[in-house]
Amino acid sequence: MDFALLHDAFWGLTFDGIALGAIYALISLGYTLVYGVLRLINFAHSEVFMIGTFAALVAASGIMGVKVEDDPRTGVSMILTLIVCLVVAMLASAITAVLVEIVAYRRLRQRGATKLATLISAIGVSISLVELFRIITDSLPREFPRIMEKTFLFSYAGADVRNDKVIVIIAAGLMMFALERFITKTRLGKGIRAVSMDENTSTLMGVNINRVITVTFFAGGLMAGAAAFFYILVYENTSFKVGFFLGISAFTAAVLGGIGNLKGALFGGFALGLMETWTSAVFGTAWKAVISFIILVLVLLIKPTGLFGESIQQARV
């Protein structure tokens, strides 16, 4: 145990934790949105994220022609590359999410299948996607070219604030704000809330359930795709296994906050990001999952439906 490290580097760790937490929060929004409308854990959501990272990779090297050995880009070219990668990752993830719903969920839902059957179907999709990418990538991790020069913007209380993480935090905040607007202000967003409250009544009130569900998966996919790009921007590599690790953490975050609750997903994401960074400093990275798990169990024992309870209908981002 190394409390000195936590003490000395506290603000630096906190900053890193917020950046990681932003990524978790974006992914866990996808779990929570889908849970809200379907009352199901979307087991394939981690692969939606994984595909986002590869899409960003393809966008950077294929579309924008950035090579791993190149110097980072600057100016307009850099901004353009960042935006293209982000948009491609978001779209790829969102389309994957919609396809996952059609392949794994739709038919089973319409037949009124049990929750477990649907879960296994989603697990099947998840396994297939992981394997597909394992075969495509020859089981090797892939490096992401450096698009932007990473510099320290300023130091605060010993914490070096790096530009890419600042971008991640700000952009993630904007995404969440946009999602909140979408859910509360638009017709489709209201449909999502209505279905989350009561599917049957919503149908009677003229909500097109299929469309709402598609939009929900699409929105969750967009968030996961953004998370994927931010992840690869900061950590600069990915592999077919990346979804598994990030997925478990993000799902834990969603449960921690109260699954089905947007505010809970955000809070859970940031809380988990911070806890993981702080505790890895003290106990070593090997134990961070254990600590997170213990905290999760303790929270659930005190509040069995998570910190914020379960309701998406009252959710405020």
């Binding site: 299948a113 049990t114 296994i120 099947g124």
Partner: peptide
Amino acid sequence: LVFGIALVVMMNLRPD
């Protein structure tokens, strides 16, 4: 991969 696909197909055909 085949296994994963089989899982999805089977669950869709026989959810129980």
